[in-house]
Design a binder for these strands. Sequence first.
DNA 1: GTCAATTTGTGCGTATGTATG
DNA 2: ACATACATACGCACAAATTGA
Lengths: 134, 134
Amino acid sequence: MIDHSADRAVFRQLADLLRDQIKSGELGPGEPLPSELRLAQDYGISRTTVRQAIGQLRTEGLVTVDRPRGTFVRVPEPVEVVPLARGERVSARMPTDAERRKHRLGEGTPVLVVTAPDGTETVHPADRVHLTRP
Amino acid sequence: MIDHSADRAVFRQLADLLRDQIKSGELGPGEPLPSELRLAQDYGISRTTVRQAIGQLRTEGLVTVDRPRGTFVRVPEPVEVVPLARGERVSARMPTDAERRKHRLGEGTPVLVVTAPDGTETVHPADRVHLTRP
DNA sequence: GTCAATTTGTGCGTATGTATG
DNA sequence: ACATACATACGCACAAATTGA
């Protein structure tokens, strides 16, 4: 499972293992991950290292933490499709703190920024909005 | 500066301080932050806590680490504009570790995902690519 | 309602490795 | 060769919130 002599850091190896379980469906949306203590004991590593691995998955937007209930596989949000107008441009970035609060964004969720030809910017939560060219 | 009795965690307070210095231009693009050890001594906190604060700024895409030279305010990348074809859809998410390495993405940089009508997905680094509806 | 157990959050210290200058 | 600086990993302790007996 975990190879301490490997080139890849232990916490990245654990993140890879958990990510694979999520992508394969072995850990489905809404399901809890084992507790940090449990993971540490199961894999013979420290809780600090487990937290690094889970931190990685949080920044990737794969899991959410409901403290102190546990850590859960993120459940996909219903997506609204927004059409693009002619000449509009699209970029993406991480939200500011204010935007995070305003849109109730989870960790690891970027925002889509639509810029109109006149320079007006519209910000959309990337987990709830997709854009389309009609 | 740092209030140990405050409600907000010490590492978040430090992240706030550094973020403010970056946003205000006091720390300009390309400029180095003080070293972790220096920040720890200056603010009377542990290096571990300093690393938590810097980790925060990294996930926000505000700084990059050039190990072991130091930690620097991120410099904006030149942007390529890619036109969208009819029927294509756009979403954004954080990259996996593998995608980060593949596209040489800095931390805190999302990817733009373009899905063609036939389901084919194209991934673009969001710091170097903008999309446009012609 | 109370109390104990569980779980994540925060913070500290230490040690070692690796790459740069 | 040496000092500097970030990365990884371990350990410990306590706080805060939830859950269930």
